[in-house]
Amino acid sequence: MAESLTSRPTLAAADAQQAHAHIDADTNTGISNTKLGMWLFLASECLLFGGLITTYLLYKHPLEGPTPHEIFDIPFTSTSSFVLLMSSLTMVLAVSAIERGEHQRMRVWIGATAALGATFIAGQIYEFTVFVREGLGFTTSRFSSAFYTLTGFHGIHVTIGIIMLVSLVLLSLRGKIPEHRAETVEIVGLYWHFVDVVWVVIFAVVYLIPS
């Protein structure tokens, strides 16, 4: 095998002649680092929310205090779920707009997404205050702790998403999202859709399944 081995460029200097030797920004998968990183983070978040959902399933029957279906207001929660679901549509339209380079349209859709998200959060705060008034405090029962922790944790994720969306609009208004950074919008969008998807699970598992 010696012949074939010596025939290839073994010397370090020869590497410099190789076609790609100096393009260090290239990525092997063809996906940008940030996008790949965001997907990995989201995969990891599955296990975080999985742990909290599992805890809820284990503790959904309280020994004392109100039970889930005495207290849930399904029509109300359905509405706010619907609001969050539609925010995914506005988000994806924002991504679509920036892909075409339409900055103004993107800002409008992102603003709409943030507004829908804020509506959802307002609904959640209202829901929590009603529950507390009806006697379901955070420390009331194992169910109450698990419920508030799971939905509250999700709410924090939505809030962080809203902050990112608002920051995006502000950055965009100041011209800080030029075309070559347009992918930032898509990546924030990935986070936003993921938060929505988690709510799809929570809505079905926590609210709709009867005990």
Partner: peptide, 8 residues
């Protein structure tokens, strides 16, 4: 280019 050239 990274996106269609537009306004800015």
């Amino acid at each position: 280019p990274l996106a269609l050239p537009s306004g800015g």
